[in-house]
């Protein structure tokens, strides 16, 4: 018979802002982000760690926030899609790349995909197509067939590296 466990206080830095909240231990990080913090850009697609729509950056790691408890993230630093844009509010290179290369359609996987790609480019600033495909394999997209997502990430990598993105083929 289920009974509600005692709530506990958690605090963390989300997109550079200190936040706190009172949660049940079983509260999943994705629900804390979406419902307590009302940052609804992080999406829920499968709840079983297969789709990656809920990907956030937690202490420099891409994690699927549907499978982490909010209490586990106590004291951590988190970046969600809402924290990806440039400080002046303009689209980051990745966000711009997704738009320029038509790397999204329904937009549901996009926040997780961009957040994951953000970490990928931090770890590998100049990835090959194969490395990009491997690096985003934890994120499912139903609309694009990935081809333009790969281009979007290549576009962003080029822009960050200060080079011109050359689209391989039309």
């Amino acid at each position: 018979m289920a009974t509600q466990a005692k709530k506990t206080q958690v605090s963390m830095k989300v997109n550079g802002v200190e936040v706190e909240g009172l949660v049940e231990p079983r509260t999943l990080l994705v629900h804390f982000i979406r419902e307590n913090l009302q940052l609804t850009g992080t999406h829920i697609g499968c709840e079983t760690t297969h789709c990656g729509a809920c990907t956030v950056d937690l202490d420099g790691r891409s994690v699927k926030s549907c499978t982490v408890f909010a209490v586990q993230a106590d004291g951590s630093e988190i970046i969600t899609i809402e924290g990806i844009a440039n400080a002046d509010g303009t689209l980051s290179a990745l966000q711009e790349g997704f738009r320029m290369m038509h790397g999204l359609q329904c937009g549901f996987c996009t926040p997780g995909m961009i957040t994951r790609a953000h970490r990928l480019l931090q770890e590998n600033p100049n990835p090959s197509e194969e490395e990009i495909r491997f690096g985003i394999a934890g994120n499912l997209c139903r609309c694009t067939g990935y081809q333009n997502i790969v281009k979007a990430i290549q576009y962003a990598a080029a822009k960050i590296n200060g080079t011109e993105y050359q689209e391989a083929a039309e």
Partner: peptide, 16 residues
């Protein structure tokens, strides 16, 4: 796409 400005920033408004 017009839509992408909001979607790439997590500002889409979905049912949930």
């Amino acid at each position: 796409r017009v839509e992408d400005v909001r979607f790439t920033q997590g500002k889409g408004q979905y049912v949930d």
